[in-house]
Amino acid sequence: MANTFYNEILTEHNMHPIHKHPMEGANFVLQGVNPTCGDDITLSLKVENDVIVDGAYEGDGCAISQASADMMLDLIIGKSKDEALRLSEIFLRMIKGKITDEEKEELEEAGILEDISHMPARVKCAVLGWHTMDEMFKKKA
């Protein structure tokens, strides 16, 4: 079985993440951990008037968990909280293997993780960043 997700997009986000750095002035910070794999992400977002104006993450884990978080931030920075939550709902549904082509388009690069749905052991890695964002918004809401 050949993976389609260890491609250039994924390895690039893993090796040269754009959003992996400490961040000042975040008003939403939450750590997400996968106890079984040890994947560990701390997500920081700066939200003004319900718009995500900046975001970053720190942590370590497999390429899928790290790249997925990086792609997520690419997608949601500049979007409203509600829009980010809508996209994460699509992403989580994609991982369960249930989205339309149009929805996948909306996820931009994150759409490359679609095939993770065939690897149950890796699903938790792919969704870590997204779940963490969901949690942080739902907690503070």
């Binding site: 993976n3 260890y6 497999c62 690897m119 052991a121 890695c125």
Partner: peptide, 22 residues
Amino acid sequence: DVHPHDIAAILNDENIAIRAGH
């Protein structure tokens, strides 16, 4: 530089089965 879960997943592409994790 490579997480063990990625090692196992990439080896799986070559039909090699090993364990990764804790």
